[in-house]
Amino acid sequence: MIEILPDKCDFCGCCVGICPEDAIEMKEAEIFIIDQRCTNCAKCVWSCPIEVIKFNKDGVPVK
């Protein structure tokens, strides 16, 4: 599961621009993953410049 920490997010849009599934909804100061579309590809995790997107595989956080 991929999780965005909204209280740490800067709403810069890197993850939105990268997401191949259009699975991230971002407003002026609101962001969330549309779970039905997310394929857990983790590209958003790698693209986040400030490390606020976490990927938990089998309950273990991975970068």
Binding site: C14, V16, G17, I18, M26, W46, S47, P49, I50
Partner: peptide
């Protein structure tokens, strides 16, 4: 950079993660 409006029109706008310069 989000470029979602174009996607809704059917254009392939998402960027390859290798080409995105994530900046601070």
């Amino acid at each position: 950079v989000e470029s979602r409006v174009g996607r809704w029109a059917g254009l392939k706008t998402h960027i390859d993660f290798r080409d995105m310069e994530s900046a601070v």
